[in-house]
Nucleic acid binder design. Structure first.
Length: 894
RNA sequence: GGGCGCGUAGCUCAGUUGGUUAGAGCGCUACUAUCACACAGUAGAAGUCGGGGGUUCGAGUCCCUCCGCGCCCACCA
């Protein structure tokens, strides 16, 4: 019976989609302990992650690949550990982003404005857009291998989540924690909506500072004032100076004249003004500057708005009415120049507030908006992290979190958009407010039927803040909510710690009375191969889809996961992904070897004794399992992945497989070798599965079939028929024999390496089998048992290999090697020139002696008294070893 | 102004609580198409762990300080 040949190179293209479909249709993404189904056991521990919902209209970028890789790793690990694992998928309606996209792609083409189209039609079109493109992103996330329970997929604007948003709003309102009023907010003139403080980005830019004269009323005297935005002069309601400023003290209480408009405004004193800075005098524009706004409140100054929603000058700006803010700046300044009010202007570097979305300069403006009183919410959220109920990984971000929470300001939650959750407030003609969970038909105060709903929608983050519990059914007390909430990990980028994580913690505590998750894991940002920040303008955008096309999903995932550390940025690029593709291929081919070995066996049911290599690889594997477990528990996923990589490539493929080739030739060792290959490879695949799920699942399937065909079902007796739900390898306590076997095999490796080294140095043809005499002392029995392995690995002729306890006499014309206490003679006479042998040996002696010197110094110091005894003993043994080596080299030099 | 991070081989980066002779990938040098894999193998070259000081038997790792980058927060016109 001939088995089907596996191709030499792993073909991810034909594998990935098939494997994913197998998982999904097999129901493996669902929690095995479902509270909605019979047989539910409340005592089984759940493990839950809510996906950071990508924008519903978005397309996959490398940031998605990052969170999917990490969360899928977390999820698969816990699934294999036996948790009832749930990863809740979904998408975000992303108010501004989506609305902008629809406006750009539909309205612009049809040459209609949003206003012309009308709200109802616009929303209809946006929903159509969502239905058309909404599955794009989720399909791309599937392609990354995400083991989400797609039956529980949610959307922030779907019915259930909208109900949750209403409930949350009404509760806060009823508690008095939501208010409406005119406040100074950040206005985005391009988007024509308010944005929150977080949505404004400050960048240092080149600007100009304008100096001018504030003339005193009925006087030739003036106060010099500087500003970056001259147009705001139109809204000035005072000039402020420091009370102690001797230059200006005489003006305090007097009146000055607003340039061009000729309004009269007072000169006030406030110690907010710094005497040293600028001219030492400050114009106060409460309608368009947050500091001035505060000062105006303190001094009871009038507040004048001079700009409309498009940032054009309004009726308060006199003749400048209708001009764009920047035109008004130019024109007003020109007019002031003519009037002789200008002193000078100069270049000036300052921070300019820009909208995170549109990029245009944000204008502080007075506007009627809805706010959340944030302090009581922040207090709880602060405590939850401080008292350890929520842990942030890496820990340093806890400090960042505290700092933000302690200085938080009220949250402006209303947006002048259409795409989003409409604010559940209705007004009657008498302006009574009705705030309701269900759409009302009449005013709650006066009963008027003539009511209309607030036009504004809520900030997108208001609904995403509810995500961990709204997706589980809140406000209803569903079985899902009961069992799966609070969730376990919140995994996301550090860049949205405030936007999202902080708000989820506040919301969770406020609405559910519980923390929404107990651990926050923050990953770093993805950078390009050179470590540069990725940006469209720089043109170094990394498309994960292209990388997956070329190298496969596993390779991309492994790149993202390995070599990175929590909270630190990580580099991704074709070169790196290619290197990981090579690793994936290595696994594939190691697997082919293992399977071929199994197939060649009649039965591997009755293995014999373990060889040294069998024990060694098993010991190394146990070490690996312990190591990986510890690293994963500590969120050191990169370290864990690296350890598995090293084991598979360096220990398993480079050494054990090579030894196995020899052991398979021998009847006495064959069965145990096949058995060991299968077991070690099986466990390796299990450890690797959360990192690179596709190739491991595929290869494990082949392995399992081969093993079962060979009648060795005991190897897999604890595992179901898919790796994704196989049992995670449990670490076992260290056993005494492990270190011995590792030490013995390490000696063998060193012997082999030193022979290979010499051969390379002497240019002995790789295919040339040479003779060797080994004098092994105490290690004689050990090495004798491994004679065939040593011969095969070092290219020795087994027939001409002699291993004895001592040598009667030193072979003539042989190159000599010393490994620890083992002496090796390679009679190379006739093959190579041995004239420089003496120099080589002297060099080695020198090296050994320098070690002896170093160790004698070390052991002669306080180290011997103060360091742990085991460590000291280790160094002593080492010293003895070097001494032995040196002695033997010296003897050879005689 | 406050806070955080980084500086380790030519390049990009790991290095958990201080404990051998500091590691990986890529690149580089030499050799190898043999029967898991040339997406490979074997052997090799390459680092005063940014500078200085301190604690310690012992420091890439802890403390101080200086230098150079980067990020976050913040209301100085």
């Amino acid at each position: 019976m001939t088995k089907q040949e596996l191709p030499k190179a792993y073909d991810f293209k034909s594998t990935e989609a098939r494997i994913y479909a197998m998982w999904e249709t097999g129901g493996f993404f669902k929690p095995h302990n479902d509270p909605n189904k019979p047989g539910f056991d409340p005592n089984v521990k759940p493990f839950v992650i809510s996906i950071p919902p990508p924008n519903v209209t978005g397309e996959l970028h490398i940031g998605h690949a990052m969170f999917v890789s990490v969360e899928d790793l977390m999820t698969r690990y816990h699934r294999m550990k036996g948790y009832s694992t749930l990863w809740v998928p979904g998408t975000d309606h992303a108010g501004i982003a989506t609305q902008l996209m629809v406006e750009r792609d539909i309205l612009q083409k049809e040459e209609v404005t949003r206003e012309e189209m009308g709200r109802e039609e616009f929303l209809k079109r946006t929903w159509e857009w969502k239905h058309k493109y909404g599955s794009l992103i989720t399909n791309q996330i599937r392609r990354l291998g995400a083991s989400c329970d797609w039956d529980r997929e949610r959307f922030t604007l779907d019915e259930g989540l909208s109900r949750a948003v209403r409930e949350a709003f009404v509760r806060l309102y009823e508690k008095g924690l939501i208010y409406r009023g005119p406040r100074l907010i950040n206005w985005s003139p391009g988007l024509k909506t308010a944005v929150s403080d977080l949505e404004v980005e400050y960048e240092e830019e080149e600007a100009r500072l304008y100096y001018f004269k504030y003339m005193l009323k009925d006087s030739d005297e003036y106060i010099p004032v500087a500003t970056i935005r001259p147009e705001t002069i139109l809204g000035d309601t005072a000039v402020a100076v420091h009370p102690d400023d001797e230059r200006y003290q005489k003006f305090i209480g007097k009146t000055c004249i607003v340039p061009i408009l000729n309004r009269e405004i007072p000169v006030i004193a406030d110690d907010y003004v710094s005497i040293e800075f600028g001219t030492g005098a400050l114009k106060i524009t409460p309608g368009h500057d947050p500091n001035d706004y505060a000062i105006a409140h303190k001094h009871n100054l009038p507040i004048i708005s001079i700009l409309d929603k498009e940032a054009k000058v309004n009726e308060n700006g006199g003749s400048y009415k209708g001009q764009d803010r920047f035109d008004a700046r130019k024109n007003l300044w020109a007019d002031m120049k003519k009037a002789g009010l200008v002193i000078k202007e100069e270049p000036y570097r300052t921070t300019i507030p820009r909208s995170q979305r549109g990029g245009e300069i944000v204008e502080p403006m007075i506007s009627e908006q809805w706010f959340v009183t944030i302090e009581p919410l922040a207090k709880q959220a602060l405590d939850a992290v401080k008292d350890g109920r929520i842990k942030i990984v890496p820990e340093r971000f806890e400090k960042t979190y505290y700092n933000w929470m302690e200085n938080i300001k009220d949250w402006c939650i209303s947006r002048q958009l259409w795409w989003g959750h409409r604010i559940p407030v209705w007004y009657c003609p008498d302006n009574h407010m009705t705030v309701a969970r269900e759409d009302p038909t009449a005013c709650a105060t006066c009963g008027s039927k003539d009511i209309h709903q607030d036009e504004d929608v809520l900030d997108t983050w208001f609904s995403s803040g509810l995500w961990p519990f709204s997706t589980l059914g809140w406000p209803e007390q569903t079985p899902d909510l009961e069992y799966f909430y609070p969730t376990s990990y919140m995994e996301t980028g550090y860049d949205i710690l405030f936007f999202w994580v902080a708000r989820m913690i506040m919301s969770g505590l406020e609405y559910t009375g519980q923390i929404p998750f107990h651990t926050v894991y923050l990953h770093g940002l993805v950078r390009d191969e050179q470590g540069h920040k990725i940006s469209k303008t720089k043109g170094n955008v990394i498309d994960p889809l292209i990388l997956m096309d070329e190298f496969g999903t596993d390779a991309l995932r492994f790149n993202i996961l390995v070599g990175s550390t929590p909270g630190n940025d990580t580099n991704v690029g074709p070169k790196k992904v290619e290197a990981n593709r090579n690793f994936v291929n290595k696994i594939w081919n190691a697997g082919r070897f293992v399977i071929a070995a199994i197939d060649s066996q009649q039965s591997i049911d009755k293995p014999g004794d373990y060889t040294l290599a069998d024990s060694w690889i098993w010991a190394k594997l146990q070490q690996l399992v312990r190591d990986v477990e510890r690293q994963i528990q500590n969120f050191q996923y990169g370290q864990a992945g690296q350890a598995i990589y090293d084991f598979i490539w360096n220990d398993f493929a480079d050494w054990y497989v090579e030894v196995a080739k020899e052991q398979l030739k021998n009847d006495a060792t064959r069965a145990r070798t096949v058995d060991t290959l299968a077991r070690v490879f099986d466990i390796s695949l299990k450890l690797l599965h959360p990192f690179i799920p596709f190739v491991t699942e595929e290869m494990w399937g082949h392995l399992r079939r081969a093993v079962l065909d060979a009648g060795a079902s005991h190897i897999f007796d604890d595992s179901p028929n898919a790796l994704i739900v196989a049992k995670w390898p449990e670490p076992r306590p260290l056993e005494g024999w492990e270190e011995t076997k590792i030490a013995d095999f390490t000696l063998l490796q060193e012997i082999v390496r030193s022979i290979r080294n010499l051969r390379a140095e002497k240019n002995v043809a790789p295919s040339k089998r040479i003779a060797a005499n080994i004098s092994a002392g105490a290690k004689t029995a050990l090495l004798k048992a491994q004679a065939n392995v040593i011969a095969s690995l070092a290219g020795l002729s087994e027939a001409e290999l002699s291993i004895t306890e001592t040598l009667q006499e030193k072979p003539k014309d042989a190159a000599a090697l010393v490994v620890g206490s083992v002496e090796i003679y390679l009679p190379l006479a006739g093959m190579v020139d041995l004239s420089n042998e003496k120099a080589r040996l002297e060099k080695e002696l020198k090296e050994a002696e320098s070690h002896i010197q170093r160790l004698e110094n070390l052991l002669g110091s306080d180290f011997a008294n103060k360091a742990p005894a085991a460590l000291v003993q280790k160094e002593r043994d080492k010293l003895a070893g070097y001494k032995d080596t040196a002695e033997k080299i010296k003897a050879q030099l005689k």
